[in-house]
Design a protein around this nucleic acid. Structure first.
Length: 504
RNA sequence: GGCGAUUUCGUCUAGGGGUUAGGACACAUGCCUCUCACGCAUGGAACACGGGUUCGAUUCCCGUAGUCGCUACCA
């Protein structure tokens, strides 16, 4: 059994955008598969036809493509264990449902949803189980003839798993250790619905994991309560020998307040909870994505990897490949983690710091163009080199450095009051003369000449520089003055100064 | 309500029977400086509570409380 090749899967339902918690689950699966030299399978669990949302499947695939998480097989990736869409596996499930029925481990039930609802209203804490199934309309309380007649007459039914009371069920969890539960508290779960000829999650999940030779099931904590049911199903099928090991990951919680992270939190606090922007086809609602918000996929990966796990070192910046080597599922934390989006922003900033000006310029250039500016890649890269370390996102660059490309048309009032002195106009007019005399307008040469001019005239460095800054930038921000003037060039620099002196 | 999981600074976490309980984010202050940032430095800030076990518990055990999840013919 230990010889088996490691195979894990990520199996979302195509019911909408991929939640960021789901992304983390997929990431951990991916890291686990890679570090064990195993396979990562992508399965679509669309057994609830009523919740199907068009475009969701494509969205999920594109999300992982953007993030750099690769699957070895599955929907759209091929493989020998297909089909990988559960709605295309109807015939397979039927075989296994029949197997359980024949073995007396499951039974047919005719109770309608309305009847069940009535029972729940009638009996407090009603549960369809060993205590109550004797009073319901099912193949246990009817003769075979009655059952056959009902089916022949076209009555819809479900198949329920017959759970015997009094058994202690153990789930061996990679993160939580041994979790024990008594079978008495489990209900006879619906395994199959005749109405749409589809199984429910529980049956499909076990059958598929078995057939697809999954060795480890790494999923969210919301599945922990039904894990004993799954263990019982493996036993009912006689598949204990190859039953996968389980690992239930803690959930992602709201940044503040109570409960698990939701889309609403993102809207309210201003951060994305989906990898990509999502257009809901039903409501027409648009939800922001990490990609569109300006996050680098590497930063998102790094951030998510550290939400609920860490390698025990003090380093926090790791590439996806490095994480593969370091990941240890047993070191995952057990408690839910609040979604600390501030930390996510910090990660993105660190990735900007570590990327070259050329790489950032590649992203920034289209934004410059979008503002109607025609600049060479070289000049854009120069600006990026000066400014990139100041921002958390590339798109923040424009607000910080548009003055490199567009001359100021107005001058910030506060800065003017603070920096524009009585004699500023006279001094800057004098400075124009100094600059005009320069043949070499390079940063170093300007600096030398201007510094000497300031010293010779015993001007105050701060007064000159800040007033000068106001003329070139329009406000009191930006990199060193000579960086700015050297980039603008002699002509533009002097033109901006003249215009400002005239206006101020 | 029942069942399960879980609990270290505001947040993410390291650690583990004897530690000045470590790091990061955020926050504050300072430094750098021609501005604004970045960066750097410093600082405040935590073992949920109550019982055990023990020479000693934040660490192990048991309770209590909080938190999270499940309790569907949803996944």
């Amino acid at each position: 059994m230990s010889e088996r090749r490691v195979r894990v899967r990520f199996a979302p339902s195509p019911t909408g955008a991929l939640h960021i918690g789901g992304v983390r689950t997929a990431l951990y699966n991916y890291l686990f598969a890679r570090q064990h030299g195993g396979d990562f399978v992508f399965r679509i669990e669309d057994t609830d036809s009523s919740r199907f949302v068009p475009g969701a499947e494509e969205y999920i695939i594109e999300s992982f493509k953007w993030l750099g998480i690769k699957f070895d097989e599955g929907v759209s990736f091929g493989g020998e264990h297909g089909p990988y869409r559960q709605s295309e596996r109807r015939e397979i499930y039927k075989v296994y449902v029949k197997q359980l029925l024949d073995a007396g481990k499951a039974y047919i039930a005719f109770d309608t949803p309305e009847e069940l609802e009535a029972k729940r209203a009638e009996i407090e804490n009603f549960q369809y189980d060993a205590r109550t199934r004797g009073m319901m309309r099912n193949s246990l309380t009817m003769t075979k003839e009655e059952v056959d007649a009902l089916i022949a007459a076209g009555n819809q039914y479900v198949v329920r798993f017959k759970i015997e009371a009094g058994e202690a069920v153990h789930v061996d969890d990679l993160i939580r250790g041994d979790v024990k539960i008594m079978s008495d508290i489990l209900d006879d779960k619906v395994l199959y619905k005749s109405a749409d000829e589809l199984p429910t999650y529980h049956l499909a999940n076990i059958v598929d994991d078995h057939l697809m030779e999954i060795t480890h099931v790494i999923r969210g904590e919301e599945w922990l309560p039904s894990a004993p049911l799954h263990v019982l199903l493996y036993k009912a099928f006689g598949w204990e020998d190859t039953m996968p090991r389980f690992a239930h990951l803690p959930l992602l919680l709201k940044p503040e307040g109570k409960g698990k992270l939701s889309k609403r939190d993102g809207d309210r606090l201003g951060f994305p909870v989906f990898p990509l922007e999502w257009h809901d086809p039903k409501s027409g609602e648009v939800s922001s994505g990490f990609r569109e918000s300006g996050y680098f996929p590497e930063a998102v990966i790094n951030f998510l990897a550290f939400l609920g796990w860490n390698p025990g070192t003090e380093r926090e910046l790791y590439s996806l490949d490095e994480l593969v080597g370091l990941f240890d599922i047993s070191k995952c934390s057990k408690a839910g983690a609040r979604f600390d989006y501030q930390k996510g922003i910090w990660f993105n900033h660190e990735y900007i710091l570590n990327k070259s000006a050329e790489e950032i310029a590649e992203v920034f250039a289209p934004m410059v163009k979008a503002h109607g500016i025609d600049e060479t890649m070289e000049r854009i890269t120069q600006v990026v080199a000066m400014m990139k370390d100041r921002v958390n996102f590339v798109h923040e660059l424009w607000a910080l450095c548009s003055f490199f490309f567009v001359a100021p048309t107005e001058y910030d009032e506060k800065t003017r009051k603070k920096r524009w002195k009585e004699d500023s106009a006279a001094q800057l007019t004098e400075l124009i003369g100094v600059l005009e005399s320069l043949d070499d307008f390079s940063l170093a040469h300007q600096e030398e000449v201007v510094h000497k001019w300031i010293e010779d005239n015993e001007y105050k460095m701060g007064n000159i520089m800040n007033a000068w800054r106001l003329t070139l930038v329009g406000e009191g921000k930006g990199p060193g003055m000579f960086d700015i003037s050297a980039f603008l060039g002699k002509e533009e620099t002097i033109a901006r100064m003249k215009r400002a002196i005239a206006e101020l």
